[in-house]
Nucleic acid binder design. Structure first.
Lengths: 341, 341
DNA sequence: TTGTATGCGTTATCAT
DNA sequence: ATGATAACGCATACAA
């Protein structure tokens, strides 16, 4: 069933059918109705490939993410897909893993597929060595490139992110102001966002004129999902003589492990160990006590990112960088504020 | 840059270029090399839309799932995408939510997009009233429909699933054999898979000639993510006089809430309360003690499902139903087996 | 307002 | 082994 069939049955030309199909105003109401009736009767739907060929677009956006089963990335992908679909776009998902070569391959796969735009979810797409980011610049030559939680200054690249520096700084300050100075910062990513969080932690100490020690900034290199491994890692630090009364973690899973560590070592939370996580994910409510965690406004970010993308595709000039503020969600792993007592 | 440009530059016809492009054997090696060189030099890639129009396929599979941010579904989507990409297919993701109307709309959106096949992730796509499943039968008329963890007998519909009945039965038996008879079954889904798990629980009691009470089969209707709500729900049951020494949950999140409930009520795990979850997700290792949980072989299922799909698309005859056995992963929320003592 | 004719970039069927 | 040419199904500039 093609546009030709419809045109014959309705006794009009294919141009008229096409006009009806595309809501062109230059069609007499009666003609329109006649054509629509035939379409209805035949259950006709236009061929997406032919349409794509003619319009040079199938209204499809490529979503690139390292691992869509990651708690945080999965949420992002979900919200992005929702917003895209509401905006009339489809989502082509591509999980790249964390290796540069795979990221490049996945990106060109999407571009060859002729997507209208690309969304890179997570700050891990920006490489240390700027030369390695050429693949992003190349992509931006073809379609708008949206980065979620990354910062990259280049034409046709748009960044939507949370101010992780400030959020981490505030979280750290809240611990310091609760009287804790030996705060372990536990992180597992050195991406752009990872660095910002670390810098935020550090700046809180500087701001309070407190000494900053490298021993208190610990990088965990193991798997994201190995809670036990993280737990043992903390045990090791303790046994090596490091004393800390708070853990600020760059991800909820690390904070969850800290809760477990506390329990296994009979440390009272938050009296003997305060804990703050990051992402305000479902893990925050799976602990006992529940995690105090930084909410990085993922949903807002996704909505804004897609809006910016769709507006850009519509030919509108949009800001290249949009920044949201995080906020600390206080729960059981930190002492309540004074005025809450 | 089109096939015409290449043909001119290489001094051959477009047919030859097309042959080179598609690895057709009927090309003289020298000619092939000449053409490839030109392509290389120009960085030519064929237009995907034109290719789609000609072949009536863009090697794209539609993935339908209720909510890709759900822990379990996200893992499924991830593994499916990986396998599809390795097989040369792209993944068009579409999150439908749990309402029938939205599922129908999403499905026809994918079909209009002319995907080569559809994968429905999760048993929630099969409706109680079989008339409501007509949309699936209609889809199967056009493309192969793959169901993950659902059972639906119809031509061109392929099911890959875990034997939840048996797995739930075995998990329940393991509790009974540990000497516990008052086992609360806590569930939050009445989907096909949900019903099977419940039936498995029930059959374990029948098999052991134990009485089966409806009071011990509790449906939690709240949000999937509301751990506190579930916790209070258990509290309520207890206060209403129900006594149980084990909780078998249809999802890890419910089991996690049970762990929390035990902690808040100072119940020793597993001595006073044994707990078994389902899905063997990351939540299982976030608890203290860690959850004993049923592993439903998601990764195996996804691999097999995609393999079946790709083979089917290749014109091969494949089995319409593939069933995997689940297995119980024993951790801290249940007593160790005797022979392990 | 409507119709005609052409282009979009491939694939595939014929010839040669 | 290679080339000419007709689909594929739609959008659209131009003509009427």
């Amino acid at each position: 069933m093609t546009i030709y069939d419809i045109s014959k049955m309705a006794g009009v030309s294919i141009a008229t059918v096409s006009r009806v199909l595309n809501g062109n105003a230059n069609v007499r109401p009666e003609t329109r109705k006649k054509v629509l009736d035939v379409m209805e009767r035949c259950g006709y739907t236009p061929n997406a490939f032919a349409r794509g060929l003619g319009l040079n677009s199938m209204n499809t956006i490529g979503i690139l993410c390292a691992d869509s089963s990651d708690l945080y990335l999965a949420k992002a992908v979900y919200h992005i897909e929702q917003n895209l679909r509401l905006g009339g776009y489809r989502s082509l998902l591509c999980c790249t893993g964390y290796e540069l070569e795979n990221k490049k391959n996945s990106l060109s796969l999407l571009l060859n597929q002729k997507v209208d735009g690309v969304i890179m979810v997570g700050s891990n797409f920006i490489e240390e060595d700027d030369a390695d980011n050429q693949y992003i610049r190349d992509a931006a030559q073809q379609v708008p490139v949206m980065l979620l939680n990354a910062d990259f200054d280049y034409p046709n690249v748009y960044c939507t992110l949370c101010d992780d520096f400030k959020a981490a700084q505030e979280a750290t300050l809240s611990l310091i102001e609760a009287g804790i100075a030996d705060i372990l910062y536990l992180y597992n990513s050195r991406s752009y966002s990872g660095k910002n969080k670390l810098a935020g932690y550090q700046s809180a100490f500087l701001q309070k004129d407190l000494p900053l020690s490298r021993e208190y900034q610990q990088y965990y290199a193991g798997s994201h999902e190995d809670v036990d491994g993280i737990c043992h890692f903390l045990d090791g630090l303790r046994r090596s003589g490091l004393s800390f009364h708070a853990v600020f973690a760059s991800e909820d899973i690390l904070a969850t492990a800290a809760v477990k560590y506390a329990r296994l070592n009979d440390l009272k939370i938050p009296e003997e160990l305060s804990i703050i996580g990051y992402n305000n994910s479902i893990l925050a409510s799976c602990c006992e006590p529940e995690l105090t965690s930084v909410d990085n406004r993922l949903e807002d970010i996704c909505r804004q990112l897609v809006k910016t993308l769709i507006m850009t595709l519509g030919g509108n000039q949009m800001p290249q960088k949009t920044i949201f503020s995080g906020r600390l969600i206080r729960r059981g792993t930190t002492a309540p504020l004074n005025h809450e007592l």
